[in-house]
């Protein structure tokens, strides 16, 4: 499979990069909070979590290297299929953490069906929700190329 070329407006991207970076930092501790680990001894549990942590760290590094690239917006972003998969997983993690940290009061069915009335949210949460939607759109875009 060939590389994926993504083009996005620079000003549009600028609105998301820094807020997403802050959200990533703020919610880092939530990344493995809901993982269902099979029964086993303490060492097994520790290794399980460490493996997931290192895997996510690698995905987030790819995500920030590509999405945070200052050239993105001015010229197409070129991703290999492996990089696209990392961005997909990183975006999924960010969406899960955003939901847990900021949108926990939103009912599952409302979030799932995209029925959340953005105007009903306080301004800060509106920005968070738009970032959540942006990540989903990015995932859809990448999935359409994979």
């Amino acid at each position: 499979m060939g590389d994926i070329h993504l083009s996005m407006d620079g000003e549009f991207m600028e609105r998301f990069v820094e807020p997403l970076r802050k959200m990533d930092e703020m919610t880092a501790s939530l990344a493995q909070s809901k993982v269902l680990i099979p029964e086993g001894d303490a060492l097994m549990r520790q290794l399980w979590i460490e493996h997931l942590r290192s895997s996510l760290a690698a995905d987030m590094e790819v995500f920030w290297t590509l999405i945070g690239d200052k050239r993105f917006g001015n010229e197409p972003l070129v991703l290999s299929p492996a990089e696209a998969e990392s961005v997909l997983r990183a975006a999924a993690s960010l969406r899960m953490r955003i939901r847990e940290a900021f949108l926990a009061d939103v009912e599952d069915i409302v979030l799932e069906k995209g029925m959340l009335d953005i105007q009903s949210l306080p301004p800060d949460l509106q920005k968070v929700y738009v970032s959540y939607i942006f990540l989903g759109s990015l995932q859809e875009l990448l999935l359409s190329h994979l």
Binding site: E85, L88, A92, R95, M96, R99, D108, I109, L111, E112, G136, Q139, E140, L143, L146
Partner: peptide
């Protein structure tokens, strides 16, 4: 089930 992951994403993960 979770309310966050996209249906198309879940399909892709199962394929992968």
């Amino acid at each position: 089930n979770d309310p966050v992951n996209l249906m198309s994403y879940v399909v892709k993960v199962f394929q992968k």
